[in-house]
Design a protein around this nucleic acid. Structure first.
Lengths: 232, 232
DNA sequence: TGCTGTTCGTTGCAAAAACAACGGCGCTCT
DNA sequence: AGAGCGCCGTTGTTTTTGCAACGAACAGCA
């Protein structure tokens, strides 16, 4: 639970007043086991979730079997902002689902209560709203980024762009100094769904990239070699 | 200028105190002629724009000639929220450009000033922030919606989904009652860029749809006939 | 050990999309 | 009137993608 004060959602809020604030927000924690849905697309407006442990996958099913993975929230991250707010009245159907990627513990906040002023007891409410605003803006950038990936003209470009991103954010230089190592939170099928390409096409392209000496990989561990970024 | 009080950005704010607020925000209006850039991708963090007259196209160029059109802000709408906020310090490079689609008049707000508390003179600042939050959430939903379009499996699906959307939002029943008429703000090339498909593929598909009796069209005026929605 | 389920690479084939080039139509400007 | 230009449809060709199916490697488990 030490995660709370550290979270951007509660930045600038005295940890002593957190319990009162959480109470005011109708916060509750729930456990979800792997592959269970936190909230489902089509259901009425969900809540704001903060992952305490585990991880959550945000995805959008379309009505013939496909799914698109929109993102992943690891422990300490939030998901589901922008709904109920973005939905006009506050209660339209959610366009996405959230699914526990592992057994998870999640703090759920009632979004309406987040937005509406509460009694003066919650002096930090205004600060909270700013924090949510910042979060939303960040999410927004994230979506823009995803659109950036999706609009790449081909599978190869998508993969390279994705790996480059990961490398910039969390890459470590390889032991032999020949490249950058990144680990991705997806398996092949999930990655394909995330990039919206066919799994086999993805495998094909990864193979080509390996043969051309641009990358090396094993499972979800990828190594970008010199030239991979330039090949974009 | 009557547009101000009506705008969601200023909802709940006494129109009498608007001038003071605007002054506090470093607001200024500027004119842009057709095809001139309001702010460019890569430049440092832009501002929040409110279209007073004309229209603005938000697009993202990638570094080999392609562009993706992310949206369009007509008179009365805002654009460029989420930057400078989403950008960590408040001054990273913007990932998108805004281009005047017509001769336009635009109110520009300094985003930092929007976020930072100002002197007590601006009692409406808090309300403004909430309004921005709502706007951002809405934009967020819009982006989600766009991802929804982009992830459709083919050109046909993209086109139909796009037209259906437009029809739901602003469609009028056709004079002969045989369908719904929508006018779109794009020409063919722009529409192709918006949906991220080839222009010729778009034309081909439109032709097929016409031949199959699902739609009729001329220029940027489309008519969705019965069955078009079901064909999705 | 043997069974089973999952993940991943591979490949042939069919469908779809991108590319490129051309022609028509309507507009504006001189 | 004629030239220039923007917008749109059309079509042939090449390239890419999606689909389906198979097999290998591996992990969990009785």
């Amino acid at each position: 639970m030490r995660i709370f004060p550290a979270n951007p959602l509660f930045q600038g809020i005295d940890s002593g007043s957190l319990p009162a604030l959480l109470d005011c927000l109708g916060a509750r924690t729930e456990r979800f086991e792997r592959n269970s849905v936190v909230f489902a697309a089509g259901a009425s407006a969900p809540e704001l979730g903060l992952v305490l442990s585990g991880a959550v996958r945000v995805e959008r099913p379309d009505f013939w079997g496909r799914r698109t993975i929109l993102g992943r929230a690891e422990a300490g991250e939030t998901f589901g902002e922008s709904f109920s707010l973005g939905l006009s009245g506050g209660s339209g159907p959610a366009p996405v689902s959230a699914v526990a990627a592992q057994d998870s513990e999640i703090l759920l906040l009632n979004y309406n209560k987040v937005m509406l002023s509460c009694t003066s007891a919650c002096s930090f409410h205004t600060r909270l709203i700013r924090n949510v605003l910042a979060l939303l803006a960040r999410k927004n950038m994230g979506l823009l980024h995803q659109i950036d990936l999706l609009t790449r003209p081909g599978t190869r470009e998508k993969v390279l762009a994705y790996l480059s991103d990961r490398a910039e954010q969390g890459g470590k230089t390889a032991p032999d100094g020949r490249g950058v190592v990144v680990e991705i939170p997806f398996n092949r099928e999930e990655l394909a769904d995330f990039l919206v390409v066919d799994r086999s096409a993805l495998s094909r392209e990864l193979g080509k990239l390996r043969d051309e000496g641009l990358i090396r990989f094993e499972r979800n561990r990828f190594e970008l070699l010199r030239g991979a970024a330039e090949a974009l």
